[in-house]
Amino acid sequence: MSFESEQKIFEISNVKIGGQPGELPTVLIGSIFYDRHKIVSDHMEGVFDTKKAEELINRQEEMSDKTGNPHMVDIVASTGIAIKKYIKFVSGITEAPFLIDSTATDVKLDGLKYAAETGLLDRAIYNSITFHVSDQEITELKNTGAKSAILLGYNPRNVKPQGRIDLLKGDENKKGLIQYAEEAGIKNMLVDTAVLDVPSIGIAAEAVKLVKQEFGLPCGGGPLNAVLEWKRVTELGENAKKVCAAAAVTAMIHAGANWVLYGPIYNSDVVFPAVAMVDSTIAYTKSRMRVINIQTKNHPLYKIF
């Protein structure tokens, strides 16, 4: 698969993301400090097991080095106090970009302000600008000087693939998420096509194709959490959850996704090998057909074979 429209490539800190399928390795993003993460003993104060957290981040980085798939860290927090502690810790362990993630907008903005104050803004990605965006949120994003953000394409008014396009574009009655992001000064827009459950992975994958064709923006999503919430998967066998997790991620990549938020960071051992193999097959085929030029020597095709 290739897209007729120009495909944008952004560089966030040391990571390039976007382009035609096969040009660049898929960027893989593991989540840490999320709700119910056992390494966190106090989510309100941001108290956690630093040794285990460092081991998880280092393991993701090791898998990235082995495969050539760039990595980012999705930092999830419940409070402003916690997000600042988490950002300080993660930025000291790895040079990779990180997502500032929370269900609460004020927590995300606190994290973004902290990143600006500590000189980390180039590495920070706001996760995310959503259907519930407000003018105040956009003003605060602009005031912090935010450069990168995820646009969450979940449209409750239309959950079909076209609904993601409508939400991003907007209409005469309401601005789209892209316009909101532009007003906030966001230069690097990453679109999340919103996986809700396992059956909706197909809808999110189809939306990837539409978004990339329409806007040329780096696109992806988080399919693995849906598999982790799938209770009956264990009835299919003791390894079914791991196998289906890898399949869910690669389904998005075959649709053209440039990045994948793969859920809990401990899944790096499962996700990176599967993605590296798929990336290699896509890049090899496209380059042999002279459809693309692979943009980096640090590519799974050259690293794992």
Rank of each mutant, 00 (worst) to 15 (best):
Q162F: 14
L141T: 11
L152Q: 06
G119H: 14
R164M: 10
A149R: 03
V133E: 04
N155K: 03
Q162L: 14
N127E: 15
K169A: 14
N155G: 07
G111Q: 01
Q136Y: 10
E172S: 15
D166C: 03
H132D: 08
D135Y: 13
P156K: 05
L151T: 04
G153Y: 05
I138R: 05
V133D: 01
F131R: 01
I150R: 01
S148N: 15
G170S: 10
E137H: 08
L167M: 02
N155A: 05
K169D: 14
R164Q: 09
G111T: 00
A124M: 09
G145S: 10
A116E: 07
I129P: 02
Q136N: 12
R123N: 00
L151N: 10
Y126P: 00
H132R: 14
T139V: 09
L167V: 02
P161I: 11
L121K: 15
G119I: 13
N143H: 13
L120V: 03
K147L: 10
L121R: 09
T144W: 09
L141S: 12
G170P: 14
D135V: 07
K142P: 11
D166E: 10
G170D: 11
T130K: 09
A115H: 02
I165P: 03
K113A: 11
T144R: 12
D171S: 11
V133I: 01
N158W: 13
A146G: 12
I125D: 02
K160S: 06
N143D: 15
R164S: 15
L168W: 12
I165Q: 05
T130G: 07
K113I: 10
D135S: 12
E117I: 02
E140R: 08
E117L: 04
T139A: 12
H132G: 10
E140D: 08
D110Q: 08
A124G: 07
I125K: 07
G145A: 07
A115G: 01
L109T: 04
A149D: 02
K113L: 15
Q136H: 12
K174C: 07
D166S: 12
V133S: 00
E172G: 08
E172W: 09
E117N: 11
E137R: 10
I138W: 06
Y114D: 01
K113N: 11
R123I: 00
T139K: 06
K175L: 05
E172M: 09
G119P: 10
D110T: 05
I138Y: 13
G153H: 02
D122I: 00
E172P: 07
N158V: 04
E140C: 09
L120M: 12
K175R: 11
K174G: 11
N173H: 12
E137Y: 12
R123C: 00
G163E: 06
T130A: 03
G163P: 08
L109W: 09
F131Q: 02
D166K: 14
S128I: 00
D171Q: 13
